[in-house]
Design a binder for these strands. Structure first.
Lengths: 83, 83, 83, 83
DNA sequence: AACGCATAAGTAAGAC
DNA sequence: GTCTTACTTATGCGTT
């Protein structure tokens, strides 16, 4: 018995889960760095990254959902006399 | 100039940036699915995922803190003209 | 119903919420100006504001961490059925 | 000389700055709590707080700036054939 | 006046 | 299904 404590098996399993999760997290962090680089590149090419972000969001967001939001927004704006 | 691609900006370049970003976003989404699977697996193995999340968060924070400490140290040293 | 104030939602109530929020935002903006002034003053007195910011951040984090530690402790105790 | 060390005066001054800043920070934190309460209240009254946040942002942002953004957005969208 | 940092807002996921 | 929590994005601030 070389494992510390009497929960050796569970501990090993736990450790494995934690390591797998941290590995995936590291990969996500890498991708986020990639994104930053791409945005920096776009900026260097003279694009407005703020707008690019909005376009990405626009394309990502479900169409129906967007329509719904706009409808509520208009309702509120009209209630405020801002339509 | 009414032909496609002459809207005053480099359309092809813009499209390329958008596509690269969406590709990276897709990869991140995949990893997030991976994480969900791992958590589900851990749960199936009888672990409390809430606690696993805490452990991950703590370890992440510890790492960040190390970096932070070093940064503060450097800042102070530089303020003392000892950098 | 085409008269003003009958767009289907409680316009007056909505307006009131918006105004209260904007008032609070204005107050926050004032405080931020105050902070800027204090930092300028400190700088004028010969202090390194970057370091002062670090000190503030560290103290803030310390306080937050105490809370956090307590929360983690509770979580663990509850997981052990000792809450 | 009753102050600790030989930088007593500077230390007192520094402490004063830090305390003033922390006081202002505390006030800002209070206001943020106020905001949370107001949003909760609005939610309780049946409003969609997500939209209210957007409206606040809309009103906060300078009109000219907003027009400018929309113009750039349209330009980009048209370049992508999404207009 | 552009860059990077630091805080704050908004969004999405998970727990109860 | 609601509610909170964690992560991502965005804005503002200070600096160079």
């Amino acid at each position: 018995m070389s494992e510390p404590g009497h929960n050796g098996i569970a501990a090993d399993q736990l450790r494995a889960f934690v390591e797998r999760l941290e590995r995936v997290n590291a990969e996500i962090a890498e991708r986020n760095s990639d994104k930053s680089e791409i945005y920096a590149e776009a900026k260097g090419a003279g694009f407005d990254t703020k707008i690019i972000r909005k376009i990405i969001a626009l394309r990502t967001k479900d169409h129906a959902e967007r329509k719904e939001e706009e409808a509520v927004m208009e309702l509120y704006l009209s209630a405020l006399g801002m339509s």
